[in-house]
C-alpha cells in the first residue's frame, strides 16, 4: 500500500498532561499492594513512556514535561507550549471560531460529525491547530500550534484556512511565522479537500517567502504525512524536538511494504539531522533561547548592496525564477 498524506500511521500515546487537581492528589495510594499500578496512580505520578521511570507529575510539569532521567520529551498541550515559548500574557488567539464542516458527509464506523464533536469535547478547541499572535523574548510573532489530541492533529479544511489566515496576519503585520507541528497528516474524513490543504498551506508559505518574512518550522512528535509533505518542510529554518518521529509514510506502512522491521531510530529527529533534512534539534529547555537567537538574525534590517534596485519584489526568493 502506498503511503498517504492522511491519518496516523503510528500508535497514539497521550501524555497525561493536565488535571492535577487537589482531589486527585488527595487520593489514597494503596502502598500495601506494591503493584506498579498502585504506585503510579493516574495523575499524581507519571510513568515515562521511554525509560519507565515514575516521576512526580508536579516535577515533570515544572521540567516542561521532559523526563529528568532520560530526557524523553512528552507531548505537551497547546497551553503548555504557549507558556513555554511566548512571553507572559502576550498570546492573542485568532480565528478560534473557524470550525470544520463535513463536506463529504463522511461516515466510516462512526460519522465524521460525531468524531469532531468528541474531539471538541475532549480538547475544548474547535480545531487541530490554534493560531494567534504573541511575542517571544520581545520579538513579535505569528504563531500556529498543532493540537495532537484533536483527531491526531490532522489537517482538514479548517486547519488549512487557519494557517492561510495566520500567514495573512504575518504579512499584514510584517511578523515572522512560527508553526509548531504535531500531526498525523491530512484528515481522511475530508478526502481530496484535505489533500488540497497541502497546496493551500504551501502556497501561503510561498507568499510569505516572497514578502521576505521568515518561517520557522518546529517539528514535534509526531509530524508525518501531508503536514510534513507541505508547509512543515518549507521552513527557512527547520527545528525539531529530540526523539520526534518525522516522516512522510508512517513506520507501520513502510514495514508492511518492505516486510522488515525498521532499524532503531529510523525517522527520528536525530536521524533526520544526520541525513540533512532538518537544521537542528532543540531540547525544550533551550528552544526559547534558540528561537530568540534566530529571530534576532532575521529581524535585523536587510542589507542592500549599492547596486540593488530599491526594495525587492521578492523575485529571487525561489530558484524557479
Amino acid at each position: 500500500m502506498p503511503p498517504c498524506c492522511a491519518g496516523p500511521g503510528h500508535s497514539v500515546r497521550i501524555a497525561p498532561t493536565e488535571d492535577l487537581t487537589p482531589k486527585c492528589q488527595a487520593e489514597k495510594v494503596g502502598w500495601f499492594t506494591k503493584t506498579k499500578e498502585s504506585i503510579v496512580p493516574s495523575n499524581l505520578w507519571t510513568k515515562c513512556q521511554k525509560c519507565e521511570e515514575a516521576i512526580y507529575s508536579k516535577d515533570l510539569a515544572k521540567a516542561a514535561w521532559v523526563c529528568p532521567k532520560c530526557s524523553h520529551h512528552f507531548r505537551i498541550s497547546v497551553h503548555d507550549r504557549i507558556e513555554l515559548l511566548l512571553d507572559e500574557r502576550s498570546w492573542q488567539e485568532l480565528n478560534a471560531h473557524i470550525k470544520t464542516a463535513d463536506p463529504l458527509k463522511f461516515h466510516a464506523l462512526t460519522s465524521y460529525d460525531e468524531r469532531v464533536k468528541k474531539a471538541v469535547q475532549k480538547t475544548s478547541a474547535n480545531e487541530a491547530i490554534s493560531t494567534g499572535l504573541g511575542t517571544l523574548e520581545g520579538f513579535p510573532l505569528a504563531v500556529g500550534i498543532f493540537n495532537f489530541d484533536f483527531m491526531g492533529g490532522s489537517m482538514g479544511s479548517a486547519v488549512g484556512e487557519k494557517i492561510v489566515r495566520l500567514v495573512d496576519e504575518a504579512i499584514r503585520l510584517r511578523r515572522p511565522l512560527l508553526i509548531v507541528s504535531c500531526s498525523g497528516g491530512a484528515r481522511m474524513d475530508e478526502g481530496v479537500l484535505s489533500l488540497m490543504q497541502m497546496v493551500k498551506t504551501s502556497q501561503a508559505i510561498a507568499r510569505l517567502s516572497r514578502e521576505r518574512l521568515p518561517f520557522l518550522s518546529m517539528l514535534t512528535d509526531p509530524t508525518t504525512g501531508g503536514v510534513t509533505a507541505s508547509f512543515a518542510m518549507l521552513g527557512d529554518v527547520i527545528l525539531a524536538e529530540p526523539g520526534a518521529l518525522i516522516g512522510f509514510a508512517g513506520p507501520r506502512v513502510i514495514e508492511q511494504t518492505i516486510k522488515e522491521t525498521l532499524p532503531e531510530g529510523f525517522q527520528r529527529a536525530e536521524f533526520l539531522l544526520e541525513t540533512g533534512l532538518i537544521d537542528m534539534i532543540v531540547s525544550r529547555k533551550d528552544c526559547r533561547a534558540t528561537l530568540a537567537k534566530l529571530l534576532r538574525f532575521f529581524s535585523a534590517p536587510a542589507h542592500h548592496a549599492p547596486h540593488a534596485e530599491g526594495p525587492s519584489n521578492g523575485s529571487d526568493v525561489s530558484t524557479a525564477f
Binding site: A101, V164, L193, M196, V199, K200, Q203
Partner: peptide, 8 residues
C-alpha cells in the same frame, strides 16, 4: 487553491 476547502 485558496478557495479549496469547506469550513464554517
Amino acid at each position: 487553491y485558496r478557495r479549496m476547502g469547506v469550513y464554517t
